[in-house]
Design a binder for these strands. Structure first.
Length: 152
DNA sequence: GCCAACGTTGGC
DNA sequence: GCCAACGTTGGC
């Protein structure tokens, strides 16, 4: 059992979109970074905890708790010509990109980036490190517990 | 919109 | 394999 933080731009897919989705579940398509892909493909298991994070928006921060509900399988969007996430080098026989499915556990209050940075126990949280741009990062169990407490 | 930081690409 | 150029991310 591991814990993760997953970023999404709310203008693309928000916590409310997740809440409104069928089964409150979404396939986490569109990841086109190898490190983030490897986390999904190689390490994520059903039941892993997910912090849903809004990025590139007015109030960046954690806005909900979710969980991995299906292990990684080929990202459907890599095969769709003209799609934003089409990859001409990917084939169904040799897919390049994978995604898990994520299901909402509950929406939370906004735990802002500012508040995260102000919490000493979270000083090593990956997403707070300088220059970090990974859309999926592991979260230490102690950090997870700290954040759950902050969320109330 | 700016720009620092970082990943990817491609010529050599 | 090097590395310059380019593209993207994401907070501000």
């Amino acid at each position: 059992m591991r814990y993760w933080l997953m970023k999404s731009e709310p203008s693309e897919f928000s916590i409310d979109d997740l809440a409104a989705a069928p089964n409150q579940t979404v396939d986490w398509y569109g990841v086109r970074n190898y490190q983030a892909r490897n986390f999904m493909r190689d390490q994520m298991r059903v039941g892993d905890g997910v912090l849903f994070y809004h990025s590139s928006c007015a109030e960046p921060g954690i806005v909900g708790i979710a969980e991995v509900c299906r292990e990684a399988y080929p990202d459907r969007t890599q095969f769709i010509p003209g799609h934003k996430y089409f990859d001409p080098k990917a084939t169904p026989e040799n897919p390049r990109w994978f995604n898990v499915d994520v299901r909402l556990v509950r929406k939370t209050r906004l735990l802002s980036l500012k508040e995260l940075r102000a919490t000493p126990e979270l000083a090593n949280l990956r997403v707070l490190q300088r220059g970090n741009r990974l859309s999926i990062t592991p979260v230490d169990p102690r950090e997870w517990n700290c954040i759950i407490n902050l969320l109330g």
